[in-house]
Design a protein around this nucleic acid. Sequence first.
DNA 1: TCTGGGGTCCTAGGACCC
DNA 2: TCTGGGGTCCTAGGACCC
Length: 421
Amino acid sequence: MFALADCNNFFVSCERVFQPELEGRPVVVLSNNDGCVVARSAESKALGVPMGTPIFKLKNLVESGRLAVRSSNYTLYGDLSRRVMNILRDAIPDMEVYSIDEAFLNLEGLPEKEMLPLCRELVKKVKKWTGVPVSIGIAPTKTLGKVANHFAKRYPGYRGVCMINDDAKRDKALSLTPIDDVWGIGWRAAPKLEAAGVRTAADFVARPESWVRGRMGITGVRTWKELQGFSCIEEPELERRQSICTSRSFAELITDKDELLLRVSDFAGICAAKLRKEHSVAGEVGLFIQTNRFRADLPQYAPWASVKMDPPVSSTPEIVSAASRLLDSLWQDGYGYKKAGVVVSDTHPDDEVQGSLFDDRLQDRERENKLSAIMDRVNAAAGRNMLRVATQRPGHYSDGIRREHCSGLYSTSWDELLLVR
DNA sequence: TCTGGGGTCCTAGGACCC
DNA sequence: TCTGGGGTCCTAGGACCC
């Protein structure tokens, strides 16, 4: 059996921990650059605010004081997430952290009658120790755990925990679950299924496997089996990420190449530091730049390019310089750029790098790696970007990114305290 | 004026191998 | 004139997740 622990309205709950005046009010948290709604309190859902709404569409609600707004504060959310996960891990060490606000706990070996009391205790403990409300769904597969979790969240009678542990409960739950609420059924597949008469998860499992396979491929069949209690979604063994992307939208359109280079260099530097943090190197560096796709009145341009790195690298100078060369190749005058991103991919463990036969920069490379290691140490102690490549931007990473409703640095880390203005 | 960021997996088709 | 069969690897794009 799995237990899926999922924090309720996580970003909003984090804001409320330190701003209790937000309790009981409609609240939303916005995406980076204050673009659109990425988290809603129960009260704002009740107001009918859809997920992903661009904030300008909610102007009336905000200005009339009926809706409270916060910019996203990922330092805070990351901190609280870590605390919640530690409490869960303490109880069930065999845990897979699935995202910032949810984790699968493997309950194997635990007697079934102890599952519900243990999870109820966990819900109370997380709330008491961190202030974050969490719900838990218990079931024989991950997909059913999601279903159970929905019920735990929706109906207070469950007191935060719902368990699906026999056929009768499963059938009932499936017949009450709309098909588009099922984990693994996305916005493309759901309308097609509905058009074919599949309105609930129960309708879906009633179809033959071949029908599902023909329309949705192997992934659809997996969901179909999981809903019937046959576990087939494995824990990803990947410790190392296969790609790392750092991208942002900008508050203003950027028309100056040097200005964009500062941002792109900074994104590249962040990617390099992230790579080193997980002891990886990347065999490819990519860059995309984009104009504002919502401005139909302006010319559009959104190119992508990448370059192979042989041997694979993780040093800041090398990745920044690769990104800079890519920008040279992509840049076109006459456009206003709204967003850019650096992606490093084809990652390998840094102790398994194979030297290149034609590497004429071996010595430089060794020096740059040492330099990067020193940068990491200094920046860990003295604050992010204290040491940087000259084309990286000085100042705080949120400069040039809109954050007009940001909450305080309640849980805060040293580097943010140091760099905040 | 204002529309996020960061990932994974699957599939189909082409290039290439013997 | 005839012009196989069976593989792997890579890539781009689609779909999904939070």
